[in-house]
Design a protein around this nucleic acid. Structure first.
Lengths: 120, 120
DNA sequence: CTAAAACCTCACGTTGACGTCAGAGGCAAG
DNA sequence: CTTGCCTCTGACGTCAACGTGAGGTTTTAG
C-alpha cells in the first residue's frame, strides 16, 4: 500500500508518517519511482507508535525501544528504560486522577446553587 | 512573601510564576519598588494551577476556569467546559492505561528468556 | 492524451510553557 | 558603603511533532 492508504487506515497524516520514517520508527520500501510502499503490518506498527506517543514517550525513546519489540529481546539498559517509562506513566495516571477528581469537585461546587444566594 | 520564596515553596521556577501572572492565573500586589508580593494562599493557588497544567489544560482554559473556582459559581458555558475537560482527562487516563499495559507486555515479552534460544 | 489526484523532497512556520541572557535597580549584612 | 543576592522588564531561544507551501514527478481515471 502507498502512504495515502496507510494514512487513511491509521488516521494519521501523511506528513506524520514521513516524520516517523525520518525518526527511524517506520520503515518502507520504495517503488521504482521512489514512492513509499508499506505492508499490512505497518498499520499495527503505526498504531503502536501512536500509543507510545500518547503515553508521552518521545520519538527518540520510541526509536530506542522498537528494536526490542521487534527482536523480542531487551538488554538490561533497555529494560531499565522500559520500566522507568512505565513507572512514569503510572505516576502520570495518578496525577490525572487527582486532577480529574479536583475538576469534579469544582464542577460540584460551582453547579450546586449557592445556599447563601438562595431566597424564599 | 516575595517571588523567590513562593518559587521555593511551590517548587516552581520564578520565570513560571511571572508567566502565570502574565496569563492572568496568579495575582500579586506590588511593593513600593515594584516587587511582587504574595499571601500564603498563593501557594495553594500555584499548586492548583500546576495540577490543571498536569491535566493537560492550557493557560487560556485555566484562566477561564479559575474565576469560577474563586466565585464558586459556574455559568452553563463554563460548566460545559469543565465537563468536557473532565471527559477528555478520563479518555486520556484510559489511553495511558492501555499504553502502560502495552509496555508491560513488551517488558514481559523481552524479559523472558526466549525459549527458542534456550539450549541444554 | 490529459487533467486531476497522489506522491516526492526541501525547508520554513507553528504552538505552549517556559529557559535564558542583558541591563538596571533594590535590600539586608558587615 | 559596598558586596552579594534578589528582583525587575523586555526580548530572544528552545523543543517536539508535526503543518504548510513551493516546485516538480507519478499514477490513475476518463
Amino acid at each position: 500500500m502507498r502512504i495515502g492508504d496507510l494514512a487513511t487506515r491509521t488516521d494519521v497524516s501523511v506528513r506524520a508518517l514521513r516524520y516517523y520514517e525520518e525518526q527511524g520508527l517506520l520503515a518502507s520500501t520504495r517503488s521504482g519511482s521512489g514512492q513509499r510502499l508499506y505492508g499490512d503490518a505497518a498499520v499495527n506498527r503505526v498504531r503502536l507508535i501512536q500509543q507510545l506517543y500518547a503515553a508521552g514517550l518521545s520519538s527518540r525513546t520510541i526509536a530506542e525501544l522498537l528494536p526490542c519489540v521487534d527482536a523480542q529481546v531487551s538488554t538490561p539498559e533497555s529494560r531499565e528504560r522500559l520500566v522507568a517509562e512505565r513507572d512514569r506513566i503510572n505516576t502520570q495516571i495518578a496525577e490525572l486522577i487527582l486532577a480529574r477528581d479536583r475538576l469534579d469537585d469544582i464542577i460540584d461546587m460551582t453547579s450546586r446553587p449557592n445556599p447563601q444566594c438562595d431566597y424564599v
